[in-house]
Simulated assay, not measured.
Amino acid sequence: MELIQIVGLIIILFALTRVIKQIKKKSMELEEGIFWLFVWLLALLIVIFPNFMSYLATVLGVGRGVDVIIYLSIILLFYLVYRIYARLEKLEREITKIVREIAIRDRYEPKKRD
């Protein structure tokens, strides 16, 4: 096993333990936790079996295994940016709704001044 594989294993195992800890503490939703467990387990398999990526590159018609990892990483990043954008839009709608409700309530129930 190469030094880079050992370093990768340590980082991945640390990330896996953090995800599991967050799921147990319920500071991460179960669906998100499963997603991140899948991502880190996939990374673990890539580190343990690096030749698989070369095989996958051949099957997909890509030059090298590293290129497959880069392409998949870019796709994953775009997906995550989309999820963040969708969540941000939802939060903005919720904040707007709350602010409107407060404004309407305060109009009909003015605060008493001391």
Rank of each mutant, 00 (worst) to 15 (best):
residue 36 W to R: 12
residue 63 G to K: 14
residue 28 M to I: 06
residue 112 K to W: 07
residue 71 Y to A: 15
residue 61 G to V: 00
residue 103 A to E: 15
residue 53 M to Y: 00
residue 33 G to K: 09
residue 89 E to T: 05
residue 105 R to H: 14
residue 44 L to N: 10
residue 79 Y to T: 01
residue 57 A to N: 01
residue 96 T to E: 15
residue 109 E to K: 09
residue 48 I to E: 05
residue 109 E to L: 11
residue 78 F to C: 04
residue 13 L to T: 10
residue 71 Y to V: 15
residue 12 I to R: 08
residue 48 I to N: 01
residue 41 L to H: 13
residue 78 F to Q: 04
residue 12 I to A: 14
residue 2 E to R: 08
residue 89 E to W: 10
residue 45 L to W: 13
residue 39 V to L: 08
residue 25 K to H: 09
residue 61 G to K: 06
residue 7 V to D: 06
residue 111 K to G: 05
residue 15 A to H: 07
residue 51 N to C: 02
residue 17 T to Q: 06
residue 61 G to W: 00
residue 27 S to D: 07
residue 8 G to C: 07
residue 16 L to C: 02
residue 48 I to R: 02
residue 16 L to E: 13
residue 89 E to A: 10
residue 6 I to T: 13
residue 92 E to V: 10
residue 102 I to H: 01
residue 43 A to H: 08
residue 69 I to M: 11
residue 3 L to H: 06
residue 94 E to M: 08
residue 103 A to Q: 13
residue 103 A to N: 12
residue 46 I to F: 10
residue 82 Y to L: 01
residue 46 I to P: 06
residue 57 A to C: 06
residue 72 L to C: 11
residue 72 L to V: 11
residue 11 I to W: 15
residue 8 G to L: 06
residue 3 L to G: 04
residue 95 I to S: 02
residue 55 Y to I: 12
residue 15 A to K: 04
residue 24 K to W: 08
residue 17 T to V: 02
residue 10 I to E: 05
residue 101 E to R: 12
residue 37 L to C: 11
residue 18 R to K: 02
residue 32 E to S: 12
residue 21 K to F: 12
residue 61 G to F: 00
residue 107 R to Q: 15
residue 86 A to W: 13
residue 35 F to H: 04
residue 18 R to H: 10
residue 82 Y to P: 00
residue 16 L to W: 15
residue 66 V to G: 10
residue 65 G to T: 09
residue 88 L to P: 04
residue 100 R to M: 14
residue 93 R to N: 02
residue 48 I to D: 04
residue 81 V to N: 03
residue 29 E to H: 14
residue 76 L to R: 07
residue 67 D to M: 14
residue 23 I to W: 15
residue 77 L to W: 14
residue 68 V to N: 00
residue 46 I to K: 02
residue 72 L to T: 09
residue 110 P to C: 13
residue 75 I to P: 04
residue 60 L to S: 00
residue 97 K to N: 14
residue 104 I to Q: 12
residue 80 L to W: 14
residue 42 L to D: 00
residue 44 L to Q: 11
residue 103 A to H: 08
residue 3 L to R: 04
residue 20 I to Q: 06
residue 34 I to Q: 09
residue 48 I to S: 00
residue 69 I to F: 15
residue 106 D to K: 12
residue 98 I to E: 03
residue 81 V to T: 06
residue 37 L to V: 12
residue 54 S to H: 00
residue 83 R to F: 04
residue 28 M to L: 11
residue 26 K to E: 13
residue 22 Q to S: 12
residue 20 I to C: 09
residue 98 I to P: 00
residue 79 Y to V: 03
residue 95 I to N: 01
residue 46 I to L: 05
residue 51 N to P: 01
residue 65 G to D: 09
residue 96 T to A: 14
residue 31 E to Y: 13
residue 78 F to V: 10
residue 66 V to A: 11
residue 24 K to T: 06
residue 39 V to R: 03
residue 52 F to E: 07
residue 32 E to D: 10
residue 112 K to M: 08
residue 69 I to P: 05
residue 68 V to Y: 02
residue 32 E to A: 11
residue 80 L to F: 13
residue 1 M to N: 03
residue 30 L to N: 02
residue 38 F to T: 09
